[in-house]
Design a protein around this nucleic acid. Structure first.
Lengths: 198, 198
DNA sequence: GTCTATAGACGGATAGAC
DNA sequence: GTCTATCCGTCTATAGAC
């Protein structure tokens, strides 16, 4: 074959990517339910029907957006499960988690602005509750098995704090790298809080 | 008048409250947009039209739900503005904030599951961005004016952590008071972190 | 790959009887 | 306060031409 694989024509994927970009922006901005396919199509100067060439349904568009992000989260969890439960591992988990959210901040924001809408998606249900489940896993990995309640609460608060810290200041900071390292430093500080004597 | 005030008949307010309760549950469970007035009416064994006697619109229902919660948040901010910027004040802000979220956890959950949907409500826009604005105020009150970036980030992470901590474990803990005090203790610990030497 | 046209369903909201 | 009936708008999705 002198060309790219038949079912992945270059132009087609370009258009597909443009659809995803516009959909992501609109979903995050004004919500999944309030964004119609007509609106997405208008922004791209195509018609609704054109969208259906690239995606089976509206749900399919959001699913394609979430897919990669969830995959990375699962990869992080899988990696963490194979590491020793040391302080160094926990810091590395947080470091990777911060990077993951920072890199996928658009999707992350969209996801959290539309939790109810996205959670009730058929595909989402098959994959389990998108977030709750993964957050529980990460909490376990940060605390170790059979941790006391307050350790679990602390770990959950660290993860929640990372999200809020990154998202709240994402738009009003010039140097994203610096924001990430600030958040990471604080997160590690919090996570190690109760074990300072150990 | 031997009866209650004419425009607040007992039965009417009972029904109104039942509508609010059902709506809150459904909005939180499956989302604002995916919950139709027909569905709410069916649960109450009345018709859609009956709902319109108690509320002008669907938007009006959710607005009535949010009203009280936002009012309490504003009251907390107003109170905090009149206090001295001491460590004791900051702890008291956090204590009240924890109570506020714990008491209004149903509304809080609904609100966060439907951020996009609720934010684009007309009434919401008039009151300013429901959350962002208030969170910024609270961050200022926790850090004092002109704080460095990392102090602001830390304060934002504390507030985010409180929400996540309370919501994540709300369903799997028997003693809510204890969860609140655990979260508060950790929140204060985090908030005081960088000032330990001062 | 993109178009026009339309099917088919559902939602919010109102009118007016009781 | 609650009902029946209905209007009108919008949406997702599909059929079929180009």
């Amino acid at each position: 074959m002198t060309e790219a694989a038949r079912h992945e024509p270059a132009r087609g994927n370009e258009t597909r990517a443009r659809i995803q970009a516009v959909a992501l922006e609109l979903f995050a901005e004004q919500g999944y339910d309030k964004t119609s396919l007509r609106e997405i199509a208008e922004r791209l100067d195509v018609t609704k029907a054109a969208l259906y060439y690239h995606f089976r349904s509206k749900e399919d568009i959001v699913a394609s957006l979430v897919e990669d992000y969830i995959g990375q989260l699962d990869a992080l969890i899988a990696w963490a499960r194979m590491q020793p439960g040391t302080g160094g591992t926990r810091r590395e988990i947080l470091r990777r988690y911060v990077s993951l959210i920072s890199d996928g901040r658009e999707v992350f924001r969209m996801l959290h602005q539309n939790q109810a809408a996205v959670s009730s998606l058929g595909a989402a249900k098959q994959r389990g509750e998108l977030f709750r489940e993964r957050m529980t896993s990460l909490v376990s990995l940060l605390t170790g098995p059979g941790a006391a309640l307050d350790e679990q609460v602390r770990a959950a608060m660290v993860l929640g704090g990372v999200s809020v810290g990154l998202m709240s200041f994402a738009d009003e900071v010039k140097d994203r790298e610096k924001l990430c390292s600030t958040v990471l430093t604080i997160a590690c500080d919090i996570a190690e809080g109760p074990e300072r004597s150990g």
